[in-house]
Design a binder for these strands. Structure first.
Lengths: 337, 337
DNA sequence: TTGTATAATGTAATGCATTACATTCAAGCA
DNA sequence: TGCTTGAATGTAATGCATTACATTATACAA
């Protein structure tokens, strides 16, 4: 591989000039710039990034931490993230934490050793201490998307979870449902708490009673939706919900399977609303009514935010994107009592 | 950040000794080793990887190129890959090519510039020239998984595609099906050609006629399964297939939706077999009969193979893993004529 | 005891790009 | 003409770990 020296030799100038021609073209004569450019082309030079990174103490790598790479919810966010990153000459290192603290720590350790310039957190399921240790200055290269920590004022991109949940409940209520249950994500996530709050406040606003047994916790996956669905559908007739709002599409689909197993018809006997609008939600049976998140845009925003932080720009603490209720076939008028 | 110098100072030895204590402990006295170890702990040293990589001209980074990160089929493969990589101190850089040649080239360019040590290809949808340019020596740091190039003898991990397809057809035939169609993946992929060959040869073995209209091409996604399903189901009654073998679960699920739309019952009127056994296949309606691939193991094998290549070990050219037909509810006895 | 082989450690060069500081040169002004 | 100023370029130090080569210490044999 040719080095900057070879270019300097070919262009008849010093390595410093070559470096400047590349990094600060305005500091170099038009003529020199051209000579350097053609010398680079001639010898086929491309800068050694390890050397550059060593010198600049940066890595042009952004770590994206997510709880589960297998969850299709994240894939579109990642696509958005990557697009912006590549455009700006950054690399994205995907870190699957698999709900495992050790891994998250390993990724955070890349920051002080200059192996990563910044982190985007798509999960709140990491020890808070990891984040607070970093948080010496006010501007740290850390941005959250989707999730957030309520104890910490990190730059965050997210949706209005209470509102989205309230809208879903409002819609169910408008269909005449009164016994509305919810299958939540892991309740250590602030966003799940927010959605439950939105659910509760809207139930109240609609003057509907909330049976405590109607709030059950899942983990966003198919199986937990199926299992908690079984629990909800096994309730005695007078308490059994006629509509269930799920915190993820996968759980909603798991729930619909539980309904089939229990010979409960969706949507005739039971209305189901999911969350996320993953590709699958259009292809399941029945097609799923769900809350759509602008996933691609969430990814883009988060990466832009992080790059702004890296460039020491002032960034908004909070960026709230809007959701949309997509009505499909899994919801219907409440059954008569 | 403390450097190796600080450690040397604290341990009362030279930087060379510290380096040796870390990289070649056997070249250093037990006593020195201990002194160095405690000095490292004391100053809180961790090696600067940019410097190490610069010196060693390696990056400890493996690029994994895949056609579509949003496809859940890949996620488990990636999990397997990553597990092995992390264990061996390598980092995984996921490269989504999105069927876009330019991106693939950008990732290949990381190799000569020491930004990546090797590449694992999970797609054959890249210009062959990228690969052959690299292929100077006999052992290049490039391994394929799932897909392969038939023109090139690269180390490869895969399944026996013709056999898997033949088994699926054999099973359908055993249920009495005679009009068996197939929705393929993109036909520039050798694996799809292989599956079609397996389909054809088994049809022949079962003395079944293949209507050319029964072999239709999809792109592995939901939508193409839906669309091609519509085409197949619109065939005149006497030619309409009673069973369809799809090259992916997503297409099978899309197809089942097309069947619902056309009031064709699965499995009573139409049997459907998918491929891959993604998580979803247990939760769709009806549950999908499918060909299961050992995805986690494919990922692990591929990464082990690549690391062996990097260590200049002799590696097998081909590693074939076995598949399994998972019978669920989307297949049934052929309808009476 | 002296010499030799071997193990342990140290010195300094190396990988490559960047950049503070030094030098050169030409333009502009008194 | 001589001097100032600033642009353009060069020189050399820097970032940090690794390692070839040099040196010292130790063990053992003669």
């Amino acid at each position: 591989m040719p080095t900057i020296k070879d270019v300097a030799l070919a262009a008849g100038c010093s390595t410093a000039t070559v470096s400047r021609a590349l990094a600060n073209p305005e500091k170099v004569t038009e003529a020199t710039r051209k000579r350097v450019a053609s010398a680079i082309a001639k010898v086929g030079y491309s800068p050694n990034l390890a050397a550059r990174n060593l010198r600049r103490s940066e890595s042009r790598t952004i770590v994206v931490l997510l709880p589960d790479i297998a969850n299709p919810f994240f894939s579109e966010i990642i696509a958005g993230l990557e697009d912006i990153a590549h455009r700006e000459g950054y690399r994205v290192l995907l870190g699957d934490c698999e709900h495992d603290t050790g891994r998250a720590k390993a990724y955070f350790d890349l920051l002080p050793t200059n192996q990563a310039d910044g982190i985007i957190l798509l999960t709140a399921e990491i020890p808070l201490s990891l984040v607070t240790q970093q948080a010496r200055g006010s501007q740290i290269p850390l941005v959250m998307a989707c999730e957030y920590f309520d104890q910490l004022a990190l730059p965050t991109v997210r949706i209005d979870n209470p509102l989205a949940a309230a809208r879903a409940v409002e819609y169910l209520s408008s269909l005449g449902h009164q016994r509305i249950a919810t299958i939540t994500g892991p309740m250590q996530n602030p966003i799940c708490i927010d959605r439950v709050k939105g659910y509760q406040s809207e139930m109240e606003r609609q003057q509907l009673v909330v049976n405590p047994g109607w709030i059950v916790e899942g983990d966003f996956g198919f199986l937990s939706g199926y299992q908690q669905g079984q629990v909800l559908l096994a309730m005695p007739r007078e308490h059994r919900p006629s509509a269930i709002f799920c915190h993820s599409d996968e759980m909603a689909i798991g729930l619909m399977k539980a309904a089939r197993d229990a010979s409960v018809r969706v949507p005739e006997d039971l209305s189901v609303i999911g969350f996320d609008n993953i590709g699958l939600s259009e292809y399941c049976q029945p097609e799923l009514t769900t809350v759509s998140q602008p996933r691609d845009e969430i990814g883009r925003c988060a990466m832009r935010l992080l790059l702004d932080v890296l460039r020491k720009k002032q960034v908004p603490h909070q960026q709230v994107l809007s959701t949309q209720l997509i009505v499909r076939a899994s919801t219907a008028q409440a059954p008569k009592l």
